[in-house]
Amino acid sequence: MAVFVALGAFLMTLAGGWTAQRVTDRRHLVLGLAGGLMLGVVGLDLLPEALDAAGDEVYGVPAALLLFVAGFLLAHLVERLLAARQAAHGAEERDGRIPEVGLTAAAAMVGHSAMDGIAIGAAFQVGGGMGTAVALAVIAHDFADGFNTYTITSLYGNARRRALTMLAADAVAPVAGAASTLLFTIPERLLGCYLGLFGGALLYLAAAEILPEAHHRHPARPTLLCTVAGVLFIWLVVGVGE
């Protein structure tokens, strides 16, 4: 049952990626929406789940928040290291962007989608009602995952073929994750720690890369409205899922 339901996430991910590539003439609006979706996913979905699942505090700070900060710093460090490597080897950036950063970020999105599938499978192990609620939330926000995976990969100068490859991997990931729960169950605390780390990395990409690029050389108001719409959409998804 969990694998069958995860096929819905597969289709929604592809729909999100298709939407992202069809609106290239409004790139700033796409990026503004993507930034809002990413901010909403982090603040309204990933971080609350991480705080609930990770549990323990470390020197008075929830472990999930520590890993959230670590994820933010890790994303920044990876980007700077890749930039330094490119400069050292005399490689050219594409429009000031480093393609490897986009691929790394997209790979993280694929990993997150696999965890979404695992979450669906684990919820169905608890009960049908729980599984259905989690599946609805995952399927709805996987549209945003597909949208963001294609957008991030393309933003950093990767060819369309690479962006489509990462989109396909992101679509298959929840199905594979759900299937894996037939073999094992992931500990709740480990899942919470992962969500905290991934949330920090995703927030870095949204705040330091996606949103600044969205507002570059374009009127701020329409782009800002798209960003707000992205956050509100995720809020709606989370509310329906609850």
Rank of each mutant, 00 (worst) to 15 (best):
F4D: 04
T13Q: 11
L14C: 05
L14Q: 02
G17C: 12
A20R: 15
A20T: 03
R26C: 10
R26G: 08
R27D: 13
L33Y: 15
G40A: 11
G43C: 11
D45K: 06
P48N: 10
Y59S: 07
A64Q: 08
E79S: 05
L82N: 08
R85H: 14
Q86C: 07
Q86Y: 15
A88R: 15
H89Q: 07
G90D: 08
P99G: 09
V101I: 02
T104V: 02
A105F: 01
A108G: 14
S113M: 07
S113Q: 04
S113G: 08
A114T: 01
D116W: 15
G117A: 12
A119F: 12
V126E: 12
G128F: 14
G131Y: 15
G131M: 05
V138D: 06
A140L: 15
N148C: 10
I152V: 06
T165C: 14
L167H: 11
V172I: 10
V172L: 13
A178M: 06
A179K: 04
A179N: 12
S180D: 09
S180Y: 14
P187M: 13
R189P: 00
C193L: 14
C193A: 06
G199W: 13
G200R: 09
G200E: 14
A201S: 09
L203Y: 00
H216C: 11
A220H: 13
A220R: 13
T223K: 15
G230P: 03
